[in-house]
């Protein structure tokens, strides 16, 4: 096997957490015989140097300003140049705004396939085998690739960033990039009230069973006391009770806090897909048969309107 190309990402001049996770995934494959790890990031040599510090064997700074648009059109030629330079036959991307578009774009451009949102990767019989969830999380599928390169996008939090294992290779640069056919005219980032939900050690999340928007004020008070973040099910977001940027699940954020308190959330597979990696789950639900109750460590079966205020008082 000829090596792995990681498409790293950066935000505000620093490598994003997914970059370390992708290098962690690539190093695992490398140890299983997949070859060396080359990581590419849009930016300057200093940023690319960070990829070596994070464990990549070699790094490539993709310097074209077009890449700042984050469009697949701009990235595809850059990735093709990096493939030619590294000789890699596996490409790993994050399941992010970039990877969701670039993974399929590369697959169709290169006449191969992409496995989206993978949770596990391994070398099996000299080939990449990727595990991903399907059917909203009800099923797991293991897939391999007919053609080369094999491309996979990796779900957040599925791999740990390597610890203290800087690579020894060099940083090179490429300036190839495509002309985006899609013109970005504006971007609005969700204003983050406090700690990012992906990073929070405690997440208190609410669902449709809260009954209305005001339930979330209660949950925010609890998460504030626990120095955590507040999340929501898609049902709650679709009802307009909470911003979609705080949605947990298959089509929302992936979180794996030490403590996840699910309030009035039934535990549909698509919600679980975003939080099943939590170390400790607590369910507050009036239905003892709710799936969330079954998968939790501790559960209270009762009306959240009475339970949560009492919990807040007790913790204060």
């Amino acid at each position: 096997m000829a090596g792995i190309l990681v498409i790293a990402e950066a935000a505000n001049g620093a490598l994003a957490p997914i970059s370390g996770e992708l290098i962690g995934a690539a190093k695992k494959l490398s140890a299983e015989g997949a070859g060396s790890v080359t990581a590419l990031v849009a930016g300057d040599a200093a940023l690319a140097q960070g990829l070596i510090a994070a464990g990549a064997d070699n790094a490539i700074a993709a310097t074209s300003a077009n890449l700042a648009t984050g469009t697949a059109d701009a990235y595809v030629p850059a990735v093709e140049a990096a493939l030619a330079q590294s000789g890699a036959d596996i490409i790993l991307l994050g399941q992010t705004s970039l990877g969701r578009d670039l993974g399929p774009a590369l697959a169709f451009k290169l006449g191969t396939a992409v496995a989206m949102d993978c949770v596990e990767l391994k070398v099996d019989g000299g080939k990449l085998r990727a595990t991903r969830s399907a059917y909203g999380g009800n099923a797991r599928a293991e897939v391999s690739f007919k053609n080369s390169p094999a491309i996979a996008t990796v779900k957040a939090k599925s791999f740990d960033a390597p610890e203290g294992a800087a690579g020894s290779g060099s940083v090179s640069s490429i300036d190839a990039a495509g002309e985006p056919r899609v013109k970005v005219t504006g971007t609005s980032r969700a204003e983050s009230t406090g700690i990012r939900i992906e990073d929070a050690p405690v997440v208190v999340a609410g669902g449709r069973g809260l009954g209305d928007e005001s339930g979330f004020r209660m949950l925010e008070e609890l998460s504030g006391l626990l120095k955590g973040a507040t999340g929501a099910s898609r049902a709650a977001c679709d009802l307009g009770w909470y911003p979609p940027s705080q949605q947990v699940g298959l089509t929302g954020k992936t979180v794996s806090p030490n403590l996840y308190i699910a309030v009035a959330i039934s535990g549909a597979s698509q919600h679980m897909a975003g939080m099943a990696g939590s170390k400790n789950i607590v369910a507050i639900n009036k239905d003892a048969d709710a799936n969330m109750v079954k998968v939790s460590k501790f559960a209270i079966v009762d009306d959240y309107k009475k339970v949560v205020p009492a919990l807040i008082e007790e913790i204060k």
Binding site: V143, S144, V293, K297, V301
Partner: peptide, 18 residues
């Protein structure tokens, strides 16, 4: 292009303390 090698239902254990 993507060969399906295996398909299964992931196991979930329940150890809840009510």
């Amino acid at each position: 292009d993507l060969t399906l090698e295996a398909l299964y239902v992931p196991k979930v254990e329940s150890n809840v303390e009510i």
